[in-house]
Design a binder for these strands. Structure first.
Length: 580
RNA sequence: CGGGGCGUAGCGCAGCCCGGUAGCGCAUCUGCUUUGGGAGCAGAGGGUCGGAGGUUCGAAUCCUCUCGCCCCGACCA
């Protein structure tokens, strides 16, 4: 490709809208352009990278027995009504419209419904199983808030895969295969990932993992125990809350605590640890009032809470709603409240002689003991893990980190096969629902993540596996001699099938070098009067600081390309070594 | 959806408070010079100041409404 005619130019100034490195570099390097909020055009160089990512995805999916298919973006609404997701999501993330005949359609935000639709007619017998199909396909999600360039957009390409099994055991076995395939995919794309346990969310199912690129600009919070290797999304992360000993249960006692509305104020006023206090938090979930109690030093994890009570919609309660059940905001206790679902974190169940409000302005109760003084309908871990909390799996503090979710895998079980009637006959002739798994990777997000990880102050530093081109040919200085030599070399390389971008622009050396660094193509070969005079090439590997001068007779482009590929070997070896 | 910020030339911005002929840098085009880290000189083109109302002799500037974009939160396979 001759750069003089490349569609998409570099920009010198950091775009004012772009906050994170990948977004800034995507714009500055001319890789992507915004059309509207959450809607981006991939320019020629970025599309080449995307195609390379897609090739890696196809190879790794094929390796675990996947079969590529392609399903429509537009689905009839009835399909999504079968699983209840039309009712739950239409008009929210799920964009919908009617055609000229007033028939309702949606823009698919994922493809569980459509793939299950096909599975129920194509799969009849256990003899066909397991089967995995995948596609690389556009999705549309009407995100409430697109952000961070290509990290969270509304329209995007996703590799989504769906597997079908005779039983849970086979799904478990296959899930492990995909788990490793995913590790290989990210290693081949040149980025290290942390795999975390995660909440299945709206996709549903019993178990899920997310592949995270750890980076400060990530929007997910991760909890990591380095000592045990435990990693989880903060949404579901567990930790050791300890069991502080406050003695045998004593009789409840009311004490005046004027102007003590917060846990900190109460603990200070009474001279006790925050661990001895009981925090009350109020929600309304699916029209039920939820009275949550948790130890005072802990915070509620709303995802865990919503899962514990199987809520589909949840919001904080208003003061009026709180008073309506007989509680007093700031001085609340579950003792004596009516018409509320009481949910207790297990930290409260393990607490003796706790301090709660008295449902009376200016008063608290001492020696509150769950079970004796009030009962909770649900007792579960609903606490939010935090940096420094004790690991549940080692005697070590937890660490927190941010990450970009670049991929996820789910054990769906029978959620979709049950609701949509996707059945097969087992070896005994019994009809059973298909056991399903699903596996997603956002292609454009992965490209952005590679850039987020692989860059320096001068621009992108593409791993060769996803670089738009392998080689950047950059003649500098004036004179027909240099231009002729560069033309000849370019033609020779093109003929040889080398992926080369040729900066044939009549620009000053400074501009060319700056742009070359910005684009981040792994190997730069510079020609100039100087190198011609010495019968040499100057080679600059983007991942190295130093330039090298090679005699033409010693120069081997293949050797440099091999060296570039070797850069991602450590990541691949780490996957092999994990040897799952 | 709540909170905040911003819309002026392709990009980055000033001008707005205090109304009076729309500016700067980069980019683009022409010419000459220059060619190893974002060149110099000379010239040129390019903007209904997001949109619609209103106030005013006069609005980029003041008022009202509206649209869009970004950030924080809610939300998020």
């Amino acid at each position: 490709m001759r750069q003089s005619h490349l569609f998409g130019r570099t920009v010198r100034e950091i775009p004012s809208d772009a906050q994170i490195p990948s977004h800034q570099l995507l714009i500055r390097a001319g890789l992507a352009r915004q059309l509207s909020s959450g809607l981006y055009t991939l320019m020629p160089l970025a599309l080449r990278s995307v195609h390379k990512i897609e090739t890696i995805l196809r190879q790794e999916m094929d390796r675990v027995g996947g079969q590529e298919i392609l399903m429509p973006l537009v689905h009839p609404a009835e399909l999504w009504e079968e699983t209840g997701r039309y009712q739950a999501l239409a008009g929210k993330e799920l964009a919908h419209f009617t055609d000229r005949n007033k028939r309702a359609f949606v823009l698919a935000m994922t493809h569980e419904e459509s793939v299950t639709f096909h599975a129920r007619t194509e799969i009849n017998s256990y003899r066909q199983l397991p089967i995995m199909v995948y596609q690389i396909k556009l999705k549309f999600r009407d995100e409430p808030r697109p952000r961070a360039g290509l990290i969270r957009v509304r329209e995007f390409t996703m590799k989504d895969a769906y597997s079908f099994h005779v039983d849970e055991a086979d799904l478990d076995r296959y899930y492990e295969e995909v788990y490793v395939a995913y590790e290989r995919i990210f290693a081949r794309a040149g980025i290290p990932v942390v795999v975390v346990e995660s909440d299945p969310g709206m996709i549903g199912g019993s178990s899920a993992h997310e592949y995270m690129l750890v980076t400060p600009s990530g929007e997910d919070n991760l909890i990591i125990c380095e000592a045990s290797g435990y990693t989880a999304n903060r949404e579901i992360a567990v930790f050791d809350k300890g069991k502080p000993d406050f003695g045998d249960p004593q009789p409840v006692e009311e004490v005046a605590t004027p102007n003590c509305k917060t846990i900190e104020e109460v603990a200070n006023f009474l001279g006790v640890s925050e661990q001895q206090t009981i925090k009350a938090v109020f929600y309304v979930a699916d029209k039920r009032f939820i009275f949550v109690v948790i130890r005072g030093d802990l915070d509620v994890n709303e995802i865990k809470l919503a899962n514990a009570i199987k809520a589909t919609e949840m919001r904080p309660a208003t003061d009026e709603e709180i008073r309506a059940v007989g509680a007093v905001p700031g001085y609340a206790t579950p003792i004596g409240v009516k018409d509320a679902l009481i949910v207790a974190d297990d930290s409260v169940a393990n607490l003796t002689n706790g301090i709660s409000g008295a449902n009376k302005d200016g008063f608290h109760l001492k020696n509150v003991n769950m079970g004796r003084d009030f009962k909770a309908e649900i007792v579960k871990d609903i606490a939010l893990a935090f940096e420094g909390a004790k690991s549940a799996f080692a005697d070590a503090p937890l660490k927190a980190a941010n990450g970009i979710e670049v991929g996820n895998i789910f054990k769906l079980g029978t959620k979709y096969s049950d609701s949509m009637g996707a059945m097969f006959l087992d070896e005994n002739g019994r009809q059973k629902p298909l056991i399903m798994g699903c596996y997603g990777i956002g292609v454009d997000r992965l490209l952005a993540s590679v850039i987020e990880r692989c860059h320096d102050e001068n621009g992108v530093v593409f791993p060769i596996s996803v670089a738009p081109y392998h080689v950047h040919l950059v003649p500098v200085g004036k004179g027909d001699e240099v231009a002729d030599a560069a033309d000849a070399l370019y033609n020779e390389w093109v003929k040889a099938g080398v992926e080369v971008l040729y900066d044939d622009r009549n620009e000053s050396p400074g501009v060319k070098f700056k742009d070359s660094d910005l684009l981040g193509i792994p190997i730069r070969v510079t020609l100039s009067q100087r190198t011609l005079g010495e019968d040499s090439y100057e080679v600059k590997c983007r991942w190295k600081a130093e330039r090298e001068i090679m005699k033409r007779s010693d120069f081997s482009l293949d050797a440099y390309i091999q060296e570039a590929w070797a850069q991602i070997d450590p990541l691949l070896q780490a996957v092999e070594k994990a040897g799952r």
